[in-house]
């Protein structure tokens, strides 16, 4: 019925309440969908981690109002996986911090982690596991984080 190649992807979306309860089912859904579309277990696992961290960030810093939601839209091509996470607008400070974290050099955060617990570690993981990551801020500070990952054997 459908086909998937380098131009026409399978597209799937999930919009869910801005609540950490939903992150685990959503990240596993994405990983399992990649696995059934013949991406390697390692690729699926790494994608699961990236989705987890970005959704977590969107919930904590982005979609903060009552009844807020987070949306993830995924495109599975034969040679790559692209996805974007949309939140509903966070605080200006948090957005600036996110922008800064995306541009960071390879300096590891672990030394600081003992004092700061896990703060900042998530984005470091995302940056190092993604080939391409972009962030766009739209109206009302609504933020979209886009990630592209190439299939290892493509």
């Amino acid at each position: 019925m459908f086909s998937m190649d380098t131009q026409t992807p399978y597209v799937f979306k999930v919009k869910f309440p801005s609540d950490l309860d939903y992150v685990s089912p959503v990240r596993k859904f994405v990983a399992e969908t990649l696995a059934v579309n013949k991406f390697s277990p390692k690729f699926a696992y790494r994608s699961e981690v990236i989705v987890d961290e970005i959704c977590h960030n969107a919930i904590i810093h982005g979609s903060r109002t009552v009844d807020a939601t987070v949306e993830i839209e995924c495109k599975v091509f034969s040679d790559r996986f692209e996805f974007q996470v949309n939140d509903q607008g966070g605080k200006r400070d948090d957005i600036e911090r996110l922008k800064h974290a995306m541009k960071k050099s390879d300096a590891r955060l672990a030394d600081a982690s003992q004092e700061k617990e896990s703060r900042g570690l998530g984005l470091e993981i995302v940056r190092l596991l993604s080939e391409e990551i972009k962030m766009e801020v739209g109206e009302d500070n609504m933020t979209t984080v886009r990630v592209v990952r190439k299939r290892e054997d493509a």
Binding site: M1, F2, Y10, V11, F12, K13, V14, K15, F16, P17, Y22, P25, V26, K28, F29, E32, T33, V36, N37
Partner: peptide
């Protein structure tokens, strides 16, 4: 509420039902 949309292909059903 959770809203999902997925291609009408059988391989998507197991991940969807497990989610």
């Amino acid at each position: 509420m959770v809203w999902m949309s997925f291609p009408p292909e059988l391989q998507f059903v197991p991940p969807v039902r497990q989610m």
